[in-house]
Design a protein around this nucleic acid. Structure first.
Lengths: 180, 180, 180, 180
DNA sequence: GATGAATGAGAATTCATTCAT
DNA sequence: TATGAATGAATTCTCATTCAT
């Protein structure tokens, strides 16, 4: 259902906003571009998100939620006796290849949250979810370490034109997990 | 010297750009705001940086350079027998308190670099400098680990309203250094 | 009765329009604001007044009617041997204090009528009523003089931040009545 | 001189604003219409008058100033032994015929001033000028009476489709002057 | 070299109006 | 009948950029 009464329209608009941010950056996020990408009339974007701020907030929420959902699903699908270091390397690689657009959008939106206090909560939620999940699999200190490391890795990796190898990533995680 | 012939004007403009980005985000960076913050005429900003893109690039270069310079100076001033974990915790804390504006600007500018390939080099330089420096103090794997962890920590810390304690930071670094 | 079937709704909407005009001026009159002030759904304003022009016309009619009604009631309640100059001063004072909002709205709506020929009739009606009434109490020339003077006084008074004193107003009216 | 460097541009824009208001009312005053009437680029209107409020204020000032200037010039050109009642009738007639556009604009702008406190000063200045001038020719009470009467007459006359006759106006003024 | 006036392109946003329900 | 979701048109306003001085 994609007509004027599509109840999913707000979501579609938010997802389009994520795409625009991923492709052109937050400074290129305009109602017009989002409308074009979402395939909805211009008025529809302002109808559902009265101000650009609302749109950014919705996009940030949506991105964070999708991210956490994906992370949890990844976590739950791990084999019981999985090699965590290798699995984490897989996760990071997926995040910067197939999920690249999404990861880039997320970091952009995080950057926006830096100077919009009311968006910080959503941004912090992802960090917390990451940490909690890894803590559950290891211990508080190691979990936090892995979480923060992952955050840094993703950021550095999407910024670099060269994708790190699985071996490099795995070595880092193995090293981080070593002391536990 | 602050007149029309001040040879430091380009730098002053670039620094003003960093301030604007730190305070209002990249999407609020305009020639006008920069001119106002720098205390120079509007025409001066376009004279020295023909397009807004040039200005962003200059700001990113300046931010990265300042950051690396500061990092190196921190490194060189460390006592020979310093406790690295504690020193790193100090560094992170300073980055998110006294240097907060600068750190925020830096992450904003990195976010911009995500979708402007020609800016990525400058952004990646900071990552490299960080890694090299820590590698020199430890070993390749540990150094990379510490560098990436620092990157993640700064990002997370600057996003959170609560400043992490020195103890928490130190514990994380100590844990990361443990296996070396 | 204030539900969907309230037969007074059109009137309530028209009165809300007067309030909006009084507070923010004709250029701020929108269906949305009127709906909010009237406490009715947005659709209700367009249902009863298909276009904004219709709404303005209804507001002008309502304002003129209220004004005339009030004027007549004031006239009928005058003591037989009243001092007309003093009574007129009372009337003007009341118009720019208790009735201030209404007076302001009226002048705004008159201004609108200046370039909407079909609204001029309603606007002119108030002038006529005023004149007729004063003529009945005096003579054609004096009545017209008093009416026009009142019109000017209201406009000037409502534009000035300082309220004229009763004595000033009375003196003016007494002077105007002097020749009769 | 009508090019980009015409120093009279702000004035021309303000005058165009008066024309627009006179023809279509304050609610139709837009930067676009003013630019079209003034024959200047759209950007020029916002360059010289950053907000629509500024433009309205400039128009009001200009209208009030022109009005006062004209009034003073009329006053100074009166023959020493002129019949004031007849001269005033002439003045009013001219105001609603040749000067009709200007008079209408003025009343519109006064209406705007009703809910924009910072514009009221300019509006009140015209009233004061009118009163002072007539007071100088008569006495305080009569002068004020004539001034207010003139104000009311102009308002009523521009609102009516029928122009009052010279005789009617003269009779009113003669009656108002009678007691002096 | 330096400046700031000028302008055209494009932004967010608002809203009258329509129309399905 | 009554509503409010939806949209396209129009508005104010901002600004990068150009260019005469």
């Amino acid at each position: 259902m994609r007509g004027p009464n599509d109840p999913d329209r707000p979501n579609r608009i938010a997802r389009a906003a994520i795409t625009v941010v991923a492709e052109h950056g937050i400074e290129a996020l305009t109602h017009r571009k989002v409308a074009a990408v979402a395939g909805v009339p211009l008025g529809s974007t302002t109808y559902h998100f009265a101000t650009l701020d609302d749109l950014v907030a919705a996009a940030l929420d949506e991105a964070a939620e999708r991210s956490v959902t994906q992370l949890r699903s990844w976590d739950q699908n791990l084999e019981p006796d999985v090699d965590l270091a290798a699995a984490l390397a897989d996760f990071v690689l997926a995040s910067i290849t197939e999920q690249r657009e999404h990861t880039i959008a997320e970091y952009n939106l995080y950057a926006v949250a830096l100077h919009r206090p009311h968006l910080r909560q959503a941004a912090a939620a992802w960090d917390s979810a990451l940490a909690e999940l890894f803590i559950a699999r290891t211990d508080p200190l190691t979990g936090q370490l892995i979480a923060t490391l992952t955050c840094g890795l993703l950021m550095q990796a999407v910024l670099n034109d060269e994708t790190p190898t699985h071996a490099e990533l795995e070595a880092l995680f193995r090293r981080a997990l070593a002391g536990s």
